[in-house]
Amino acid sequence: MATTVTDDETGKSVVDSDGNKIGVVSAVEHGTAHVDPDPGLTDKLLAKLGWDSSDDEDYPLQEARIDVITDDEIRLKDL
């Protein structure tokens, strides 16, 4: 299980530490995963991730938030 973000992560689900889906990796640029958030995310959760809820675009995922990367998903550390 890697923790380095590569282009192979594109299309993987991003889940919180409880396994709840946060979104999907839409692209990887310069080693940073960009996430298309699930439309049902609350403003509180978006704020914990440091994402502005007013934008309708993909958000960069800070590497420090990643707990583990598996073949199917990126799991985040506790928020």
Rank of each mutant, 00 (worst) to 15 (best):
A2F: 08
T4M: 14
V5I: 11
V5A: 06
V5L: 05
T6D: 11
D8T: 12
G11M: 03
G11E: 05
S13Y: 02
S13Q: 08
V14R: 03
V15M: 12
D16F: 09
D16W: 07
D18K: 13
G19E: 05
N20Q: 15
N20P: 11
N20K: 15
K21D: 11
K21Q: 14
G23H: 03
V24I: 12
V25D: 13
S26V: 00
A27S: 13
A27M: 05
V28K: 07
V28W: 10
V28Q: 10
V28F: 10
E29Q: 15
E29I: 15
E29Y: 15
H30N: 15
G31V: 00
G31R: 00
G31L: 01
T32M: 02
H34K: 10
H34A: 04
V35E: 05
D36Q: 06
D36N: 04
D36H: 01
P37M: 11
P37H: 07
P37E: 11
D38A: 13
D38P: 02
P39N: 01
G40L: 10
L41P: 01
T42E: 01
T42H: 00
D43T: 09
D43P: 01
K44T: 08
K44A: 10
K44W: 11
A47M: 03
L49I: 09
L49G: 07
W51S: 04
D52L: 02
D52F: 04
D52R: 02
S54V: 08
D55N: 13
D55K: 14
D56Q: 05
D56C: 04
E57T: 08
E57P: 00
D58P: 07
Y59S: 09
P60Y: 12
P60Q: 11
L61N: 02
Q62M: 08
Q62D: 14
R65S: 09
D67A: 12
V68R: 15
I69W: 07
D71F: 06
D71S: 08
D71H: 03
D72Q: 14
D72Y: 15
E73K: 12
E73Y: 07
I74L: 15
I74H: 12
L76A: 04
L76Q: 04
K77F: 03
D78W: 08
L79F: 09
L79A: 04
